[in-house]
Design a binder for these strands. Structure first.
Lengths: 204, 204
DNA sequence: GTCTATAGGTGGATAGAC
DNA sequence: GTCTATCCACCTATAGAC
């Protein structure tokens, strides 16, 4: 059984941390397919057996490695709160969503393009979207409804529609199906116009 | 699916066909990760070496196996042409898209949720969506614009927006992120309302 | 056409020395 | 805590017998 928690000053935590980083890199590079404990060990200059001093095995290593993307995602979203009014904050949320996806494509793939069961195992029943970040969007939508920028309706469902829309755009982009649109700047413009069109339909 | 052409008595075509079917099943079950030539051979009761009589190797087998999803997808889309007017045909196209995705989740994942480079290798440059089926949607959109059901605009870009929207919905559904909506029927209703909202924004 | 045998590679995991 | 040595499972692919 490997160590848990316990922040210390010895080199143990150091090696463990480097393992997590290398594991995340590898996992996000080639997906679960090409992930191997041995390769991770190789990258940090450790023998394969040495990894077992820090983790119980492959699964534990992957699990530890994959928690980071969520943190990064949240850090993008909160920046949308700097915008001055409800509509601006909603649009900024969409903007940050796109920035996160294009700036961290591998994290995005993992969080939103993998089977939900494979990801949210410690989160209780995987009945919905990653909850805390989804609630952020719901709050932005409700805010707009309260300000009469969107017509009053079920905020959760409207948030789902918006989420699906932006997810569709960025996931097709990440899969290469929208490369005809040009560079990332051109895509950003297309993305903005598309969201604009959707919000129009939602009664802005 | 009935036999197509050339009913023979030799078992060669038979074995080859069974290999393709087994390969497709296996590939769609576990993705490229768990795919192995040996397992395919096992399933059809053939030795691993025997496969090389029918295919050059693993890659060729995968390639042959993955052509089928496209055919099935097309067979769904064309049914939308039965609808009586442009708008109905556009809506029916969206409907068939959803039906295909939910009815053939593994094929859908392969076609639309894998990296484009991994799929369209024989199609020349992978600069856009699977071309022939995408053109079908563009045609439905243009038809609606001609009939003044949608405001005149760049039909290709509008089609991309619609595609992204429906893809977002079904892909989140397939990943399990929309399971809170209930069963497939409830999802279908949500899907319909969502598309409705988008088309409203696109100037219907 | 299909087989067995085999070569040569990946990987996960454990035991025991240091 | 890290190593080497080892075992076992699985894979792709080829060679040659039948």
């Amino acid at each position: 059984m490997a160590r848990t928690g316990k922040t210390t000053t010895d080199r143990e935590g150091d090696t463990r941390a480097r393992l997590v980083v290398a594991a995340r890199d590898l996992f996000l590079e080639g997906g679960a397919a090409s992930f191997s404990l041995r390769e991770v060990a190789r990258r940090v200059g450790l023998s394969a057996a040495g990894v077992y001093r820090h983790f119980d095995g492959k699964e534990a290593l992957v699990a530890a490695a994959c928690m980071q993307g969520f943190t990064v995602f949240s850090s993008y979203l909160v920046r949308a709160l700097d915008a001055p009014d409800p509509l601006a904050r909603l649009l900024a949320t969409g903007d940050q969503y796109r920035r996160f996806a294009l700036g961290n494509p591998l994290d995005y793939r993992f969080i939103f393009m993998s089977a939900a069961e494979d990801i949210h195992k410690g989160d209780g029943p995987a009945t919905g979207p990653p909850s805390s970040t989804f609630r952020f969007l719901v709050d932005r939508v409700r805010e707009c409804m309260d300000a009469r920028v969107l017509v009053k309706a079920d905020a959760e469902k409207v948030a789902l529609v918006i989420w699906a829309h932006v997810h569709g755009l960025v996931s097709l982009r990440l899969s290469g199906h929208l490369s005809a649109l040009g560079d990332d700047e051109a895509f950003a413009a297309f993305y903005g116009g598309s969201v604009e069109g959707l919000l129009r339909g939602l009664g802005r």
